[in-house]
Computed example of a mutant assay.
Amino acid sequence: MLWVKAIHIIAVVCWFAMLFYLPRLFVYHAMSDDQNTKNQFKIMERKLYWGIGLPSLWLTIIFGVWVTTYAWDYYTASTWFWIKMALVAILVVYHHVCGYFIRQLRDNLCTKSHVFFRWFNEVPTVILLACVFLVVVKQPL
């Protein structure tokens, strides 16, 4: 069981690396006026999303579900667990919204400013803080 939990934690760390860095790339992409620089951001964004983000998302979910199977009755009876699951669902949506912005930026259709992306970049930080406190304290905030 511990190796399953370890892989879950590693996948979460990798997923959050993408969730933190990709919107920061959006900030710089939105600020750029140079087409060559924008093209480089398009490559970086695509590789980060598909090469790190998506595999990490799937590993996080697969190994997270696996961990819960060891004590399913405990988890399903815990309020903190369901709050955390709601936050994870929000992160999955956020992940896919990032994919939407990649397509918008790739096709030069994105109208969002770098200021928007600076605020957008804070969403996973807030959710991470809430999830860590929920998991460690095992009580709703």
Score class of each variant (00 low, 15 high):
Val97Trp: 09
Val123Tyr: 04
Ser113Thr: 14
Leu59Trp: 11
His95Arg: 12
Asp73Gln: 06
Val67Ser: 08
Tyr74Val: 00
Lys84Tyr: 00
Asp107Glu: 14
His29Tyr: 14
Asn39Thr: 06
Phe26Glu: 07
Trp119Leu: 12
Trp50Ser: 12
Leu91Gly: 08
Met44Pro: 13
Tyr100Gly: 03
Phe116Ser: 08
Ala30Thr: 07
His96Asn: 04
Ser56Trp: 10
Leu59Ser: 02
Thr69Phe: 07
Phe117Asp: 07
Trp50Lys: 15
Ile52Met: 15
Trp119Gln: 14
Glu45Trp: 13
Asp33Gly: 07
Thr125Asp: 02
Trp80Ala: 00
Tyr28Trp: 09
Val92Glu: 05
Phe26Lys: 04
Thr76Cys: 06
Leu91Glu: 14
Pro124Leu: 00
Phe63Gln: 01
Thr60Leu: 03
Pro55Ile: 07
Gly53Leu: 05
Thr111Ile: 10
Thr111Ser: 12
Phe120Asn: 08
Ser32Met: 00
Phe117Tyr: 10
Cys110Gln: 12
Leu19Ile: 09
Phe63Ile: 01
Arg118Phe: 03
Ser56Val: 10
Val92Gly: 12
Tyr100Ile: 10
Leu25Asn: 15
Arg106Val: 03
Leu48Arg: 10
Cys110Gly: 04
Gln35Tyr: 04
Leu54Asp: 07
Thr68Gln: 09
Ser56Met: 13
Val97Ile: 13
Ile83Glu: 03
